[in-house]
Amino acid sequence: MNTIKEIQEEIVDEFSMFDDWMQRYEYMIELGKSLPLIEEQYKTDDYKIKGCQSQVWVHADFQEGKVVFTADSDAIITKGIIALLVRSFSHQKSEDIIAADTKFIDEIGLKEHLSPTRANGLVSMIKQLKMYAIAYQAKANN
């Protein structure tokens, strides 16, 4: 399994092939469509991150010392970004998730979607991913 940094570099590399925003967005929309959906039982208010514009559901599992995320959104572009976040953060160790950043989203030209004022639930989602990692780390240490 590659490290978070390696995966993010890979994503940046993939996006560098695109000439313009339209290709980038088309790719994101494809990613959004191919993201494995969260299991229906987790698509409830307990797992929902409320955004004014779009909503996000996140679930985490702890498997063999790694945190496994699944997520979904009602908006496809939001979902595309979630797919990238899940790809880089899922199946990683708690401490690596806690230490990781999301600068790669800026580098692939999607910075505006991670603006706290955009109210699409993504900023809260990243916080939530880290919270899960922190919770699992605490559990593991006990």
Binding site: Y25, Q53, A75, I76, I77, T78
Partner: peptide
């Protein structure tokens, strides 16, 4: 079949 956020994002572009 689409979400308003997605339409708004693309037309802004």
């Amino acid at each position: 079949g689409t979400h308003p956020y997605d339409i708004g994002t693309i037309v802004d572009k």
